[in-house]
Write a protein that binds this DNA or RNA. Structure first.
Lengths: 280, 280
DNA sequence: TTTGTATTTTTCATATTGTGAATTCGGATT
DNA sequence: AATCCGAATTCACAATATGAAAAATACAAA
């Protein structure tokens, strides 16, 4: 009877000291637990390790590492392959970790990242995914500037003439790419890339430098810089971008603007539990 | 010289004391770590809990729970929603847990097969294995349809009430089957098979036609068609399935849908170097 | 077979460090 | 303003995590 009020009293806003101070006195962490989690993380990075390998490379005593592993094994977070005498991440770790997704909506996670991106660059930040061969804009954070690129959420746009679209195309293998492009490349402005070869050269450049540029290819007077966001399987599932008038998004500004975009994409990738596996 | 020999010396069979005694002296676990992991698991079960809720329901002191959470937060295993002052499972827990899948290349190999299966049938494709007497869903490729069966990866489900589960059960010999079923057959819907004899008849039918059908046995309104995937030793180690609403997955559609499922299972079996040896 | 070597478990003495009661703190409620 | 509530912190104490070393085991070599 000390429990059934789970949420019924609806503590929408919590009382108590707010923990926004970030880290100030991060001295109230549990050291042994932290070290144990270090082992856990380390094991996840290179699975199938022997006890001695782990303890050697982590500089910890075998005894300690052993006890950590046995303890985690007891909860299924770690598994021991009795045949090969090697340690692995356990199935329960997968089950527990997967519950993270129940709460994670890409759009929610992206909002703070996009706000920071907008503040860092001063330009409107956008988030988009692929939807039936087109780019669907999901969300945006508008710049404070008076002249601004406006791209209402819900808009659909051709992939080959969009920063986010090209960032996503650049991550596709030859097979999927071909299917996306078999409808031909519609022209929107004089600068739209309509030639398949030219597009593939651009995609190669995008892969090499890590970001794409829409240089008035969809709307005259508007440039856009985008980078891909990856899911857990290492597939590009979204793109994040900044867009603005050519007057501010100049060739000189590319370097200054692209860095925060790439950084934002990386941050968002981490925030949704994604990782970059392939580098095509 | 303490690192680069990772596996090169090929200790196929390890030395040292073999740990097959199972648990005998399970007293060399770390108590505080075990308690901390208990908090971690508990949080994953009901996300979005306040500190006091956790400590109350677990019967632990708030201080301890707090420190555990802060420590795990430091590694991203747990997240704190500053707005609502609630604790959640973190992105890194997901990332680490997802690495469980890397242990075999099964998931990687399965992805293209599943994508093709989804496109051929129009329904969500799933991959699952047996884990401790239950079906663990590893991966899925979602359909584009608006009404879709949603079965998040990481979910555990009873074998006798799952398409993949029954496909795996159908490949077991009498001995293993008995052990799996000695816990009884829990009922989930009016259509769940709860009678041992009826189940064995269904398993015989599954073996005969090569695929299993979950006909609203776990969730009303949802049907599922599955087939087994075999490893090199000819043992069924996974199942591949499509699942969808009863409105689309009708009795008439069974033939049209089962063919691609069987084909996908065969393709995946080949892709992982497996083969079908026994036909029990 | 016997001996040697590598690796994993266990033991044990030690002090590091995790623990909960009590306190402080800051917002929410009145 | 005053009061209440739950989150964050402190502190004194002993529970318990720790690593060195020894034991146990399997494989390799002699």
């Amino acid at each position: 009877m000390d429990s059934q009020d789970n949420g019924s009293r609806s503590p929408r806003k919590a009382r108590g000291r707010p923990r926004d101070w970030e880290d100030k006195t991060a001295q109230n962490t549990i050291k042994s637990l932290d070290r144990a989690m270090e082992v856990f993380e380390f094991l996840s990075e290179r699975q199938g390790m022997a006890l001695s390998t782990i303890s050697d490379e982590m500089g910890q005593s075998p005894s300690t590492v052993y006890r950590v592993l046995v303890t985690l094994e007891g909860r299924g977070l770690v598994e021991f392959d009795a045949e090969e005498q090697l340690w692995h991440i356990g199935a329960r770790a997968f089950t527990i970790g997967a519950r993270f997704l129940r709460r994670t909506s890409l759009v929610d996670r992206a909002r703070p990242v996009m706000r920071r991106l907008m503040e860092a660059t001063g330009e409107t930040a956008n988030l988009g995914v692929e939807k039936e061969g087109q780019v669907l804009f999901l969300s945006q954070v508008e710049t404070h500037a008076n002249i601004r690129a406006f791209f209402p959420p819900g808009t659909l746009s051709a992939m080959h003439a969009s920063g986010i679209g090209k960032a996503l195309l650049a991550q596709m293998d030859e097979d999927r790419l071909s299917r996306r492009l078999e409808g031909g490349l519609q022209s929107f402005t004089p600068r739209t890339i309509t030639d398949r070869i030219a597009l593939q050269e651009d995609l190669a450049r995008i892969r090499a430098r890590g970001y794409s540029v829409d240089d008035e290819e969809r709307n005259l007077g508007m440039r856009c810089i985008a980078a891909p966001v990856f899911d857990a399987a290492g597939e590009a599932l979204a793109g994040i971008s900044v867009s603005g008038p050519t007057s501010r998004v100049t060739a000189d500004a590319l370097d200054r603007l692209s860095r925060p975009v790439i950084e934002a994409a990386r941050t968002l990738t981490e925030a949704i539990g994604g990782q970059v596996t392939r580098q095509p």
